[in-house]
């Protein structure tokens, strides 16, 4: 919120008029950075275990410096995940209890799905099929809400089953023995799903579609150009203008150095993520087809 309060003209942009919309706070971007780091650690140390009989999996483990390294990195990634979950809920609690922010759990600024989202899905599908007008999307698009809850669901499931697999002897004091076998199955499939979902669907929705290609810098800088804001979030812009609050959402552009570093790192991770997702998809399809052939013959 401190960034919205900066009223002085941007020092480095050279264009006094150029103001951008602050879409993501520094804290939100920091949390997302932790998510990215944890997600990549967990993906590259965990996925090879699920696809152990494939050469690419063995190659990744070798590149990481052996199985022992992967094992400890995976647990470090897990701890980081629990940390960002805690930090996320800490901020939600702060904003709800101390700042008494309205509309955190309801209304157009909330991530919680609304009736409008269903309308947007329908309008979007109509736009896909016959063109015309796109739905007037507010602060959070339905695909972002789905991403959020998919991530939350994945974190819950992977966190729980991961803990069971990490401390099987402790958890079987509470749970029956088959919890270990169930956890193995759930953890592996949910992880593959999460990885492919993030790297195919989330990457396309957020970065790879034509309007954002190859990367939406909003996740690094937190800022969106006015033009893009108008195009992407027309309902939010209308709402903000009606409240005469546009000024409070506008900030000077981010430093070019931050954008440059963010873009370089982002594009490398984008390529790595897509790479491992292609490997997973290929392996899964190959397995299923060979099982199908065996089943028929």
């Amino acid at each position: 919120m401190s960034e919205t309060a900066q009223i002085q003209t941007p020092a480095h942009s050279g264009q006094g008029e150029e103001r951008e919309i602050l879409r993501l706070s520094g804290y939100q971007r920091f949390i997302h950075l932790l998510v990215v780091i944890a997600f990549f650690i967990l993906t590259f140390t965990g996925i090879p275990l699920k696809f152990h009989d494939w050469a690419w999996a063995k190659l990744i483990i070798q590149a990481l410096g052996g199985y022992e390294v992967a094992r400890y990195l995976h647990r470090a990634g897990a701890i980081l995940t629990f940390l960002y979950i805690f930090l996320y809920f800490a901020e939600v609690a702060y904003r709800f209890i101390i700042k008494r922010e309205k509309g955190l759990f309801w209304g157009p600024d909330s991530i919680i799905p609304r009736v409008e989202d269903i309308t947007h899905v329908v309008q979007m599908v109509i736009w896909f099929l016959i063109g015309g007008k796109r739905p007037k999307i507010d602060r959070w698009a339905y695909w972002e809400k789905f991403d959020f809850f998919a991530e939350a669901w994945g974190n819950f499931l992977l966190g729980l089953t991961g803990l069971i697999l990490w401390f099987p002897a402790f958890f079987t004091r509470l749970l029956p023995g088959f919890a270990i076998g169930m956890s193995t199955i759930i953890h592996g499939i949910e992880a593959s799903l999460a990885v492919c979902f993030i790297f195919f669907i989330h990457f396309f929705n957020a970065h790879l579609r034509r309007a954002k290609f190859p990367m939406d810098m909003v996740i690094v800088t937190g800022r969106m150009s006015m033009q893009e804001f108008e195009e992407d979030r027309p309902a939010e812009l209308e709402r903000v203008k009606k409240d005469n609050a546009l000024f409070w959402h506008q900030v000077p552009p981010a430093s070019p150095a931050l954008a440059k570093v963010g873009k370089t790192v982002g594009l490398i991770l984008l390529a790595l993520g897509l790479g491992i997702s292609v490997c997973i998809t290929y392996s899964v399809f190959f397995d299923w087809i060979s099982r199908l052939i065996r089943f028929i013959s």
Partner: peptide
């Protein structure tokens, strides 16, 4: 697994 228990051992490893 020095901390294993009866229920732990009931896990069907070849499921």
């Amino acid at each position: 697994h020095p901390d294993a228990n009866t229920k732990f051992a009931q896990y069907n490893v070849h499921s």
